[in-house]
Amino acid sequence: MIDIRLSELEGVGVIALGGELTVAHAQELRTSLKEVVYGYRSVVVQFGDIADVDLSCLQLLCSAHKSAMKQEKAFALGEHVPAIFAQLFADAGFIRDTGCRLDPGETCLWAKEATHG
């Protein structure tokens, strides 16, 4: 089961994710991401206890980031990135030096700067 909680903190949309972040719940995650990306100028993703995570979740976060960029909004991962999540995006070869063409401000979720401090 996926655990998604939306909230607002000083005008920033916060989406808290936990549970099973897998393709089986991708539709649900997409709906929530749309809601938060279109509802706020800035969005932060926070992670709770993740039971499982797969490639579909990485793709969806990437898609949400692209959507935010197109609307000139901010979209970022929270400070705490669980090991299971970090391991997955490293294994999947997501880590990169620079972001995509939609990312002039270099806020790519997978850029070395962002992911490794």
Binding site: S63, K66, A92
Partner: peptide, 27 residues
């Protein structure tokens, strides 16, 4: 060696199919 995921095909949330794999890899 190195594994590099290519993410250009990932669309924005509007066009996103939750069951699709958009990633490809250069290894």
């Amino acid at each position: 060696g190195s594994v590099m995921a290519q993410l250009d095909s990932i669309p924005s949330l509007e066009e996103y199919d939750p069951e699709a794999c958009y990633t490809s890899w250069d290894i």
